[in-house]
Every structure is written in structure tokens, then in C-alpha cells.
Design a protein around this nucleic acid. Structure first.
Lengths: 237, 237
DNA sequence: ACTTGCCTACTTCCATACAAGTCAATAGAC
DNA sequence: GTCTATTGACTTGTATGGAAGTAGGCAAGT
């Protein structure tokens, strides 16, 4: 599932396939990219008119997005883009750390030259990336972690992580200017090194450290954009 | 989210609250408990008539169950209870092991007498349980693991695991007669012991071993009920 | 015997209409 | 000015009818 679709507002629906899954992807992407801001009210009939469909498929897309924690339907009141749940980010991160640590541990345990070569290639791509479009780096980062999971024969695990990552990704897209890309690439490199050297323990440690980075930026983001967060009232003195 | 609701077929809808979430829970429980068997065709209008509602809320419940991997909608053909995806069980189990291992590691790192006392009490309950209703043990087991997550302050993590566990649970309900309850309780005890002694490493090991048990029963289940599984054709010679 | 074409029953998907709750503005009483 | 009641324009939830696609049976033709 791609994070970025492009031309979101002018996205055209494919008349041949079902409408509501398409709407779901469009809205999902817009929310993650912070194109639709937290607490924004969105209207069933308005979207229906915009895309020239009826309310029903819009509504069905809404329902799936509620299950993904991206929307909140308050009956008879309205539908809103869910604020980011601070705890959900933290706990999603915890899950991700646990799982990806085990993934790289597995990878370091079973040598796989083709995979390492692939990863090295990706590292080169990451380095060559111009830094004025940090959005692109998020995509490459995504691909890197996805490759790790696939390499361990755990494609469906990545699908699970992808749904968990959503809340973390929202945070990343809010403040992707501040990402120390060089440092992240360095950490990626360290992970690949450990895998190649079949150093399970080192790979695990490196991955855990890598995934703990967001713990530093998260409080800053919350301070900068308190309105984007669920429990922002409980902050101040 | 409770696994067991009871009186499933005669479940009455609450007129005061929205219908489709209620239908979702009912159907979810029926599928997990193997009351609705894999590959069973279920009909929108039929269910609607049964519960005396219109087709729309039924349809919306179906959509959420598709997202949970419990139903499969084939457009213009019908809606079917999804067969159990062997790989999905394995990979869900992998996730669960990674996460719960980290949970008990955390718990063993920070002493919490009240939690240990709670867990010990639960162990007593588990032992006193009559063994002719193994279904009840699944509930106690559920509660045990849930308590561990909550004890680590990771309530939302349990919600995530709960959605992942679904496929494992279906397998368990198919063959819950064969569960070596004594052995499972013994493993639970070992986990609690390690937590109490603040033995992180031991707790982690015990949990991983505990959660690997299903790896033994899974192939047997697939052999016994090949029709329940997605890729049952690719089995025999 | 075998293929081809049609027809009917059934499915999901979408459109539309109605029901019921919420909220804000406003008119009226004091 | 202040408070209260009511109305009306919103919202989501449900019901229902029709459109389009699928599958299977049956009859006619080869």
C-alpha cells in the first residue's frame, strides 16, 4: 500500500472498478500526508458530490478508515479526521521495534547474499537523494524496511506493520523537514553491516536504536502542533 | 473485544445503538468459534431477514470483516467465510512472539508486586478449571496475556495483538480438545516466576517457547481439516 | 455427444429517500 | 440584557429499488 499517490485532490476515479476502495486509498493517503489535518471535519455528501458518486461508497470508505484509526465518526454529529493519539504512536512504535528487531535477528542468522546486495544498492540510492525533497526519503526508508521483512519471508508481517505504522507516519510527515537523513542512512548502513557479518545481536541493537529515534522528535512535534494531538489538553501546566 | 458472546444464533440486537457494529461482533465471534465454517457462503439478504434489518448494515459489517481477514467478498458472486491462511497464522504468530517477548522482558525489568499477585491468582483459577470445558481455558489464557500487556502499560498494544491473533484463535477453536492444558499452565507459571525474580532473559525465553506451541499443532490441524485452509491444494503429492 | 446462445435467478454495488439525532441561531418572555 | 424554547439546517444511520455482473440450466443447432 503506497503512502503517496500524488495529485490527490484531483484524483480521478476509475469507473471500471469499485469506488469505495479507491476512495479509501485516496483519503488514507491524504490523511497520512497531513493534507487533511487532524480534527478537520469532512462531510459525506460533500465528498460524494466532489467525486460524483453517492453517499454510500463514501460512507463505506469512512468505515474502513475508522477501523484504521484515521477517522472518527460521531453519530449524528459529523465525521472528523482523528487527532493523533500520542499513546498509539508510542505503542505502535513498541510493536514495530519488537517485530523488526526479530526480523533482523532472523536475517543475520541466515546468510543471503542477494538480499545484502539489494540493500546495499538501496543505501546508495538513499545517499544520492537530494535533501530538499525529504518526502522522497520517507519512501526509500519505507522500501528499505519492507525489503527486510520480505527478505525474512515475512511479507504478511509487513502488511501488519504497515497498518500499525500509520500513526507514526503521520508524525513523520508533519515534521519531515527536521529529519537528520544522514544519521538515518548511517543507521541503515550499520544494520546491513551487521546482517552481512551475521551479527544477530548487533543487528538487533542497531534496529532498536534506529526505531527509537522517533521518541526524540515526538515530544517536539506535540509541542509544536498541540492541536494535532488527542490529549493536548493534558499538557500545559 | 470478547471472543465469546454466547447464544450466538439467537443473539438479539439492541435497538438503541447502531446495528452494523453489533452484527460485526456477532459474525466475528461466530467465525472465530468455527460456528461459521471456512468457505461457507453467507448471504446479505438472508442475514438481514434473520435479524430483521435492511441489507445495508449487514453489508457494512461484511466490509469490516473483510478488513479483518475473516470474510471474502467476491463481487457479483457472493460472500464467503475466508479459509484460514496458513501463512497468515505463522506470520501472525511471529509478530505475537516478538511483541510478547518484549512485553515480559519489560515486566521483568520493573518490579510490580500487585501485578505478580494478580497473575498468581489467575494461575490458581486456571488450575482449578475443569478440563471438560477447554473453551473456558482459552478465555483464561486470553485474560492472562492481556493482563501482561496491560501491566506493561501497553493496553493499545493488546488491541493490536487481538486483531492479529484472530487467525491463530480460529485454529485453536477448531482443535481445542487437544490442548495440553497442564503444560500450558506450567509455562504460564514459569513466565510469572521469571517476572517475579526479575529474570528478563528467562521470561523472554519462556514466553517464546510458550507461543511456539502452536507450531506443533498447526500442521496436524491442517492435515485433519484441509478444507478449512486456503492453500490446501498445494499439500498432497 | 457436444457446443452455443439465451434466459432466469442470484449476487454485490451504487443511488436515492427517509428517519432520527445534534447543534446553533433566533424569537419571545421576563 | 438574560434566559428559555423552538425551529430549521445540518449530521449520520437505515431502508429500498435498480444497475451490472455472474453462474447454471435448458433448448436448439451442429
Amino acid at each position: 500500500m503506497s503512502l503517496i499517490l500524488g495529485n490527490l485532490d484531483e484524483w480521478k476515479l476509475d469507473q471500471l472498478t469499485a469506488v469505495s476502495p479507491q476512495l479509501r486509498l485516496i483519503l488514507r493517503s491524504r490523511i497520512i500526508r497531513n493534507d487533511l489535518r487532524p480534527a478537520t471535519k469532512i462531510s459525506e455528501p460533500e465528498l460524494a458530490k466532489h467525486y460524483n458518486v453517492s453517499r454510500q461508497p463514501v460512507r463505506e470508505a469512512f468505515i474502513t478508515l475508522v477501523n484504521e484509526g484515521l477517522l472518527e465518526i460521531r453519530p449524528q454529529r459529523g465525521t472528523f479526521v482523528k487527532r493523533i493519539d500520542y499513546e498509539a504512536v508510542l505503542e505502535g512504535r513498541f510493536v514495530r521495534e519488537a517485530v523488526e528487531a526479530d526480523i533482523v535477528k532472523t536475517l543475520a542468522g541466515t546468510p543471503n547474499d542477494a538480499l545484502v546486495a539489494d540493500l546495499r544498492g538501496q543505501l546508495e540510492h538513499q545517499k544520492q537523494l537530494s535533501k530538499d525533497v525529504p518526502e522522497r526519503f520517507i519512501l526509500l526508508d519505507e522500501k528499505f524496511h519492507h525489503t527486510l521483512a520480505d527478505g525474512a519471508g515475512l511479507g504478511k508481517v509487513w502488511a501488519i506493520l504497515d497498518s500499525i505504522k500509520v500513526q507514526m507516519d503521520r508524525v513523520r510527515f508533519i515534521t519531515f523537514e527536521e529529519f537528520p537523513i544522514d544519521k538515518l542512512i548511517e543507521q541503515h548502513t550499520q544494520i546491513v553491516d551487521c546482517i552481512e557479518q551475521q551479527n544477530s545481536e548487533g543487528a538487533e541493537k542497531a534496529m532498536r536504536k534506529h526505531l527509537r529515534r522517533i521518541l526524540q522528535s515526538l515530544p517536539k512535534v506535540q509541542e509544536l502542533y498541540p492541536d494535532y494531538f488527542e490529549n493536548s489538553r493534558e499538557l500545559g501546566p
